[in-house]
Design a protein around this nucleic acid. Structure first.
Lengths: 146, 146
DNA sequence: GATAGACCTTCCCGTCATGGGAGGGTCAAG
DNA sequence: CTTGACCCTCCCATGACGGGAAGGTCTATC
């Protein structure tokens, strides 16, 4: 199987497969005489694993750890769970931050007439510079909103 | 006021202020004889506006639009509201995606013993490659998880 | 007036996971 | 033997910054 076939079989783009090789996430596939990458079922399964993990929002670094635990038949499930729980906490924190933004925006939007007149509570809020409640620091908060 | 004083007054780092100049978000401040940027109250207010908008998760592009409406005293509040509502929809969509991830993870985590044994429903799920419900396409879904 | 150190300037690189595309080699079918 | 669909590597871009180098400026103290 060359990279195109591996891509179809795994649902991961060729660009991403090459990137995963580059960062050492998956072992380099063997190469044909003409320097084409070659894949077998094992690689395909790893690519599917990565894809699924990405769809759950794990970072590449976390996936590196998960993959290595996956390959280790004697791993303690404790370690897997720890990674999952850490990520879950991360997700919940970000959800809460974004929910706070959404709540504020929802409120402002409801207060805004949305007509031809210039008066606008949304702009008024942005002007007044009401500080968000300072839980984790605003810059972090903003960064994570991305 | 030079850039350091503007930074303290607005709560925006000097790096960010220079970046906002670079992308044309705020009008270039005047320059002193020694090429130092100079700021007045107007600039400070704009920086505070940007900071507050960022804390609500608006992108730079949206803030560009919001700033131009803010400067226009005859803007219709309809336009401001449209931007806010679009962003709100965006936020809600991303929250829903992340919540779906969190729900799945929460379930898997609860099913995982988290002990010394290697059996792990989390890894099993990643292996089986259960596809996420295909609403908006998985790649978009994954990208947004960042 | 000299020197220190706290500022300012521009410029370039790195982030993270990925897409786009150039420039060139390879393979299979017609 | 050509065509077009692949493959290769390498570089650039994304968004919203942070870090840091190399060099100019200001201010306070000696």
């Amino acid at each position: 199987m060359n990279i195109g076939q591996a891509s179809k079989a795994s649902g991961v783009t060729t660009k991403m497969i090459r990137y995963y090789h580059e960062i050492g996430l998956v072992q380099p596939a063997s190469r044909s005489d003409s320097n084409y990458r070659e894949y077998d079922e094992r690689q395909i399964n790893e690519l599917r694993f990565i894809k699924r993990a990405r769809s759950l929002g794990f970072s590449m670094e976390e996936i590196t750890q998960l993959l290595s635990l996956w390959r280790d038949r004697s791993r303690p499930s404790r370690e897997v769970k720890a990674i999952a729980d850490r990520h879950l906490a991360h997700l919940n924190a970000r959800i809460a931050e974004m929910q706070a933004m959404a709540d504020t925006l929802q409120h402002l939007s409801l207060c805004c007439a949305g007509d031809e007149r210039p008066d606008c509570p949304i702009l008024a809020d942005l002007t007044s510079g009401t500080e968000p409640t300072e839980r984790a620091g605003r810059q972090t908060l903003v960064q994570r909103a991305r």
